[in-house]
Simulated scan of single mutants.
Amino acid sequence: MRAKSKPSRDVAAEITNLIVRKLEEGVAPWSRPWRITGAGGRPLRHCGTPYTGINTLYLWAIADACGYRSRYWMTYRQAEALGANIRRGESGSLSVYYSNFKKTEANPITGAETEKSIRFLRHYVVFNADQIDGLPAYFYPGAESTDLADPSARQSAIDTFFEAIPAEVRHGGDRAFFHPTFDYIQMPHQRSFRTMDHYASVRAHETTHWSGGTDRLARAFGRRFGDQAYAFEELVAEIGSGLICAQLGLPNELHDNHASYVAHWLGILRADKTAIIHAAAKAEQAFNYLLAFSGGDREESPDSAPVEVLPEAA
Rank of each mutant, 00 (worst) to 15 (best):
T49R: 08
A157M: 08
D147Y: 09
H278T: 10
F225Y: 15
E168C: 08
E14D: 14
F221V: 05
G26S: 07
R88P: 04
G240C: 03
T181C: 10
R21S: 13
W265F: 01
T214K: 12
G53E: 08
Q285W: 09
V20A: 04
S91V: 13
I132P: 05
G41L: 08
Q228N: 14
T146H: 12
L94P: 08
V125F: 10
A283M: 03
P141L: 04
E308Q: 12
R88N: 12
V202H: 01
I62A: 11
A279D: 00
H255S: 15
A204F: 02
G240Y: 03
T114I: 11
Q155W: 15
Y138H: 15
W34G: 00
H171Q: 09
R154G: 08
I86G: 05
R154F: 07
R170C: 09
A129F: 12
W60A: 00
T207M: 15
P251C: 11
A259C: 09
A286D: 06
V96K: 02
V20L: 04
V96M: 06
L248I: 04
P251A: 14
I276Y: 02
D297V: 09
H123Q: 08
E115W: 02
G111V: 03
P50E: 00
Q228G: 10
Y98Q: 11
V11Y: 08
T160E: 13
R21M: 11
A237K: 01
A79S: 09
A39S: 12
F225G: 06
S117F: 12
D197F: 09
S201R: 08
R45K: 09
P166S: 00
G40L: 07
S99C: 11
G242Q: 03
P311L: 13
S31P: 03
